[in-house]
Amino acid sequence: MNDSVMSPEYTDAVKNLLFQLADDDFMYSFRGSEWLGLAPHIEADIAYSSISQDTMGHAAMYYTLLENLGAGNADDLAHSRPASDRRNSILTERVNGSGYYLETPHYDWAYAVTRSYFYTQAKKVKIDSLCESSYKPLAEVAVKVRMELYYHRLHWETWFKQLMSSTDVAKKKMNEAIALVVADFGDVFSYGTQKEAIESNGLIGSEEALQEKWKMNIEPLLTSLQVQMPKIPDQPVKNGRNGEHTNDLEEGLTTLSEVYKFESAAVW
């Protein structure tokens, strides 16, 4: 679809989907960046920061597409929108654990690995579908994102496998992490109130189709590790796609916008 012949309804649907994609990657990347220097060893630390940096690049691309559609300046869209305007899933906004990252972080590596593995697999399903999007600029970005995502998936799958095949303590922690992540998965494949508009315009596959694909993709690994297939809640307690969020988002946005307000005076 060409920008000049787009109906207002179509443009709105594109914008709504872009906000969901952008805010997801933005928050996932922010939570990842808080791990800097805290991962179990140096290789894991380098990899995680590299993945967070790639992911921030993906978010920046979506915000740029929004800017091109007249939604506002990309940097402002990323940093200056209040929690109620955010469309990210609850899963991506969750804190890494208790404690503040500069002072006494008690972050949970099992949770980081599990969130990342499930999230990256969900992103893979969405990106594959977006490569066929009726909105050409989005399809082109998706082709590029898919290449980078390949390495992210490889990384998190390896970690997931290793921890699940490790000690009983590790397994117990992983199973607790899976329960937490799955409980928050109710809005990951949701388009919220925009479902009809987003799906009927051929922007991306349907919620149901993508969720089914995701299950199919992770099932072989989970089965081989004797992990029960997760039961995603039918109705999310809060739906981030409709601007419903936890306090974790509020807290996260305060932290990251402090940095932005401070740095936007300088060039960045």
Binding site: I46, S50, E148, H155
Partner: peptide
């Protein structure tokens, strides 16, 4: 392969 993620996004160690 030591680390698929090297010092920059495009390199492995």
């Amino acid at each position: 392969m030591d680390n698929i993620f090297g010092p920059t996004a495009c390199r492995s160690i």
